[in-house]
Design a binder for these strands. Structure first.
Length: 454
RNA sequence: GGUCCGGUGGCAGAAUGGUGAUGCAGCGGACUGCAAAUCCGCGUACGUGGGUUCGAUUCCCGCCCGGACCUCCA
């Protein structure tokens, strides 16, 4: 078995991955706050999780993948109000869109997908325990976590708590004992979502939900906790503080994984700037598989610059891979192992660009007639959720493909063949040009004329 | 301002203390009535200034530039 090594954010280095229990690897990922449709930045994070889980499943007998849905949050409340929509309706709709989008992207679904609103009791129990243990305090209807009570606060994100306070630009609420203290529970006005609690009707702070759900489904210690690098501080730092203080006997996450952000045409993409692309924006311009490949074209810890030219290049790369599979014809891949060089690339901290380069090596061999290489290519692609279609479907499109129908194309090809036999090349070229204009490329091969949609 | 990450050929993007992947694009050729696809061949890179070393793109330091986080964000 290839040695899997992973970059751990806390240790700030790449280390061999050693599971707490080799028979059962446990992973927690921060999922979406469901107030809007998924955008390509969300998708990059979700895809990083997907590749991680696919690899772990290849290496270990059992993997539990937990990814939450945050369905109570002030952004949700605000959006629902802005839409004049019921909160439950908004979260149900956006959750469904999220699921549909990830399914379209061929992403591995989580084994458990807990919702914050279904775990309020777990959160309240943790908060009560933190208060009892002296790590949290009540103030003006809020419950706050006391940063000063946790000696290693800042260790995950590499921040010095004292400097944090000095440089803090946050507006410090007067009831905080320490500017770095963060909310575990906060009071709700009657029109806001709220739950009865020992501290009054209120709602949870952002960070406690993940601590509570991770504990409930994975226990006090688990293997990997992941999310976007923007979550490193304060979200993950705070989760860690809460969980370790609540359960001092556990170690919470053993490895922390953070994917880098996405740029769009060289610029930062963010909801607040409003320059983000949703999945459907992308699908208007290219096949979903091309987006999937594009998001894997940079290693997850590198900033990825999303461009339309990049999407097109990814589509052409898939053309090449599918061409290689088409050239080989039907190959038997049942029981076939994952190609070693490809697997080793993934085992090296999920080095997807290198893995894709190995697929190119296989494609080159397959194009030269090596059917074993074609089978390897198919298996490698399948492992990372690519090359799942038949080449014919990729090139010619399914029943819903636009442009001229198959019968029409066949008739034109027949007419062109007759013209060529009669040396009427003007008419033959006219037909080719006509089809090219309609997005259909003709290819004259030894076995006759074939076609594909450009 | 603080903390952290990164700067590789026209583009994307890996590895590496000593012949620098892979793909796209470009150029030349083969094949084709013309194309497409494929095949063969070619070219081009290590932000910058020092240091360590027999030798640095690779290690160390300064500088410049870009990005992330510090505030809702994947």
């Amino acid at each position: 078995m290839s040695q899997f090594q992973l970059h751990d954010s806390q240790r700030r280095t790449t280390v061999p991955f050693v599971p707490l229990d080799p028979e059962h690897v446990r992973v927690y990922y921060c999922g979406p706050t469901v107030y809007d449709v998924p955008h390509i930045g969300n998708l990059r994070a979700m895809l990083t999780a997907d590749i991680l889980i696919r690899l772990l499943r290849r290496l270990y007998p059992r993997v539990t993948f937990v990814r939450n849905i945050t369905d109570v949050d002030d952004k949700i409340t605000a959006r629902a109000a802005a839409n004049g929509e019921d909160i439950g309706s908004l979260t149900a709709r956006t959750t469904a869109e999220f699921h549909a989008g990830l399914a379209a992207m061929n992403m591995t679904p989580p084994d458990i997908e807990p919702r914050a609103t279904h775990n309020i009791g777990e959160m309240q129990a943790m908060i009560a325990r933190l208060i009892k243990q002296g790590h949290a305090y009540e103030a003006e209807g809020h419950v706050l976590f006391s940063v000063a009570s946790f000696a290693s606060y800042g260790a995950l994100s590499g921040r010095d708590p004292d400097e944090l306070v000095a440089g803090a630009r946050v507006e410090v609420a007067p009831y905080k004992r320490d500017p770095g203290d963060f909310v575990l529970w906060k009071p709700s006005t009657p029109e806001m979502p709220g739950w009865v609690s020992p501290w009054g009707r209120g709602r949870p702070g952002w960070h406690i939900e993940c601590s509570a759900m991770a504990h409930r489904y994975l226990g006090e210690s688990f293997d990997i906790h992941g999310g976007g690098s923007d979550l490193l501080f304060p979200h993950h730092e705070n989760e860690r503080a809460q969980s370790l203080c609540c359960f001092p006997g556990g170690k919470f996450a053993n490895y922390w994984l953070h994917n880098a952000m996405l740029l769009v045409e060289g610029e930062k993409m963010s909801k607040s700037l409003g320059n983000f692309y949703t999945l459907s924006d992308v699908l208007d311009k290219g096949p979903v598989e091309a987006l999937r490949l594009l998001l894997m074209s940079a290693q997850y810890r590198s900033v990825l610059n999303f461009t339309w030219a990049g999407l097109e290049e990814s589509r052409r790369t898939l053309d090449r891979f599918y061409r290689a599979l088409e050239t080989a014809g039907a190959v038997d891949v049942s029981g076939r192992g994952v190609p070693q060089a490809f697997l080793e690339a993934l085992c090296d901290d999920l080095n997807t660009p290198k893995a894709i380069a190995e697929m190119h090596v296989l494609a080159t061999a397959a194009l030269a007639g090596d059917r074993e290489a074609a089978a390897d290519l198919k298996v490698a692609g399948g492992m990372i959720g690519l090359l799942t279609q038949e080449p014919e479907v990729w090139f010619r499109g399914g029943a819903d493909a636009g442009g001229p129908g198959e019968a029409e194309i066949a008739a034109l090809i027949a007419e062109r063949l007759a013209a060529r036999k009669a040396k009427d090349f003007a008419r033959a070229d006219e037909i080719r040009a006509q089809l090219t204009d309609q997005g259909v490329v003709l290819e004259d091969g030894a076995g006759g004329t074939t076609w594909r949609r450009a």
